[in-house]
Design a protein around this nucleic acid. Structure first.
Length: 592
RNA sequence: AGCUCCUUAGUUCAACGGAUAGAACAAAAGUUUCCUAAACUUUAGAUACAGGUUCGAUUCCUGUAGGAGCUACCA
């Protein structure tokens, strides 16, 4: 399947019959447009093996290919690059072939397909989601889609950090200041409501610290001895000892938050198959530590704390269990990982979508699991991503300069509205269609803008730029799709017989060449966990298409076979744009 | 201090070690008998610096400069 594969076989058989050599590493690439040809074989790597002059080898291969393939018409040689001319007929046939393939580029899931857990979002329940979560969520969701397209079974999950001192902080503030108010009574979304009290806590705390410092305490003491902090700690103790009313309040406030999160997830168009709660898992992991300790993989310090020595691996010593026997973060992660494998024995791998500030943590985690001898530790992947910067400075939650996810979503929609209105896009649309379109465009802009960037790089996010209907943006892709659909509505029903075509435009050829690449792109995106590959691919396709149909029309085409061909080509392009956007989680409207 | 990641046109992003480093936005000039000009065509513009590895380096290695992050009995 695919031109590269066909060619590879041919070239391999050339080496087999001429040199009795098996050659695996053959490098094909699309011929650069300034040279004559369609596909290029890079000869340099071969010369090292064969020790034959470059040109001789090229001519030999070229002649062989022209003789043995009806589709390779001619070749030329430019400094180590063998450019092959492929007949138009081949491309036409290939288009007709892939045209018939449903879910082109996707690999069918099977009963025994590998099962991968993808973990993403994983919020704290004391405050709403912010822009950083948005990148996390979009990445995790898209990577899940891509893995599924690669034939994997995927379980989308998140670990909800629903316990700990930070939760107690918003709880104590609610107790002190909320007057028994609820999201319902105040008309505020649940997570926003709880977040308000977390902010309130910090305000009060800071004031109290300041007061204490004025009275002569040093900062450290003041932080620890502020009344509200002590109350929060007390609440944590009560929670841990299972105090009924504390537990009830905790449960109630968390429910508020979950309702709020659900609305945000819904707006982003993402979902989860299962949830893990930290309150269920935070005690896990001790067993593993003991196991490792008994195998002498870990060591105990004088105070009774347990550590692992990773200095041989170039890292540090790492604490695994506190001197009082309680867990730390990594203990939980060790426990959660092994629990998942226990729960789901057929599990084949896990992807953790977590920011790059935790690169070290995951390095350590995977290393320890490996030391413990779990065979699945090889198929763990930390999907690490960079920070999202804003034009007006960095976003740091400590400095209060966070962009709230809900607010951002709302802003994207209203920008979409503003831009659409200013270019007269929505005339003749009813209100309901309008608002759904604004949502589609706004979210498309947001998602595309974030996903088109390599995950590990930082992003500069400018809401205004991303809603541009021009250039490398989500709305431009959506618009092009809608335009192709509109074009097809006009020509689709023409009855035309199919004949073979011998001549097509070189631009049509490059569109088909690009389409033929699609399965490879999906495959590679799955291997590198990078939706950016898909995004850039789709954009290129859109560009190819626009450049072509600007100068060549369907309606003006006299030859009926060519007309049919062009309709098919347009349909397939729309098809692939659609499925590419699907992988990114972007909706495409038929009309906009 | 040590470790990790990043640095590409004015800006935002591309480029399995491959040919003359691609796009888009912004700037300058042009193009409309057919689908949605939100398009298309053309021009100008970049690999932080210094070495090395090789047929070939934005990519790999070493060093320098700049940015970020991690090195918590926090999560």
């Amino acid at each position: 399947m695919g031109i590269n594969k066909d060619l590879k076989k041919l070239v391999q058989s050339f080496f087999q019959s001429n040199f009795s050599l098996k050659v695996d590493k053959l490098e094909f690439q699309s011929t650069r447009k300034e040279f004559k040809g369609d596909i290029t074989l890079v000869l340099f790597p071969l010369v090292q093996v064969l020790k034959i002059p470059l040109d001789d080898l090229g001519v030999k291969i070229g002649n062989y290919l022209v003789n043995f393939s009806e589709y390779i018409i001619e070749f030329n040689l430019v400094t180590g690059f063998l450019n092959l001319n492929i007949s138009d007929k081949y491309f036409v046939q290939e288009l007709y072939r892939i045209y018939e393939i449903k879910n082109y580029g996707f690999i069918e899931k099977k009963v025994n397909s590998p099962l991968i857990i993808v973990e993403f979002s994983s919020p704290n329940t004391n405050k709403p989601l912010h822009l950083g979560h948005v990148r996390n969520i979009l990445l995790g969701h898209s990577v899940s889609n891509i893995l599924e397209a690669n034939g994997k079974k995927v379980l989308r999950t998140q670990i909800i950090n629903d316990r700990g001192i930070h939760i107690c902080k918003s709880m104590i503030a609610w107790k002190l200041f909320a007057n028994n108010g609820t999201p319902k009574s105040s008309g505020i979304k649940g997570d926003q409501f709880v977040g308000k009290y977390y902010v309130k806590y910090n305000e009060v705390h800071n004031q109290q610290v300041k007061d204490l410092m004025d009275k002569g305490k040093n900062k450290e003491d003041a932080i620890k001895s502020s009344p509200i902090f002590i109350s929060a700690q007390e609440l944590l103790r009560l929670w841990e000892s299972g105090d009924k009313s504390t537990y009830k309040l905790w449960k109630k406030m968390n429910e508020w938050v979950y309702n709020g999160f659900d609305r945000t997830y819904n707006n982003l168009g993402v979902f989860f198959d299962s949830l893990y709660y930290e309150s269920d898992t935070y005690l896990l992991g001790k067993k593993i530590i003991e196991e490792g300790f008994s195998k002498d993989l870990f060591f105990k310090k004088e105070d009774g704390s347990i550590w692992v020595d990773l200095t041989k691996e170039g890292l540090d010593e790492k604490l695994l269990l506190r001197s009082d026997g309680t867990s730390v973060y990594i203990t939980q992660d060790l426990g959660t990982a092994s629990k998942r494998v226990e729960d789901i024995p057929e599990l084949d791998g896990m992807v953790y979508t977590v920011g790059n500030e935790q690169d070290y943590h995951f390095k350590v985690l995977f290393l320890i699991l490996n030391k413990l001898g779990y065979k699945w530790s090889d198929s763990l992947f930390h999907l690490s991503y960079g920070m999202v910067d804003l034009p007006d400075g960095k976003m740091k939650s400590r400095e209060g300069n966070v962009i709230d996810a809900d607010q951002l979503i709302h802003e994207m929609e209203s920008t979409a509205k503003k831009v659409s209105e200013s270019i007269g896009k929505i005339e003749g649309m009813i209100k309901k269609e309008q608002s759904s379109l604004f949502k589609t465009i706004g979210m498309g802009a947001l998602k595309y803008h974030i996903l088109k960037v390599d995950p590990k790089k930082r992003i500069l996010f400018n809401p205004e730029d991303s809603v541009d209907f021009n250039g490398n943006t989500g709305p431009f892709i959506q618009y092009t799709y809608a335009r192709i659909k509109s074009l097809l509505r006009k020509f689709e029903n023409s009855n035309i017989e199919i004949k073979d075509l011998d001549n097509i435009d070189y631009r049509e050829k490059s569109i088909i060449k690009h389409l033929l690449l699609y399965p490879d792109i999906i495959n590679q995106a799955g291997k590198t966990y990078s939706p950016a590959l898909i995004a850039n691919y789709v954009y290129d396709l859109v560009k190819f298409f626009n450049a072509f149909y600007q100068n060549v029309s369907i309606s003006g085409t006299k030859d009926s076979s060519l007309k049919k061909f062009r309709i098919k080509l347009s349909k397939k392009v729309a098809d692939v744009i659609f499925s590419g956007c699907l992988l990114l989680g972007i909706d495409v409207p038929d009309n906009m």
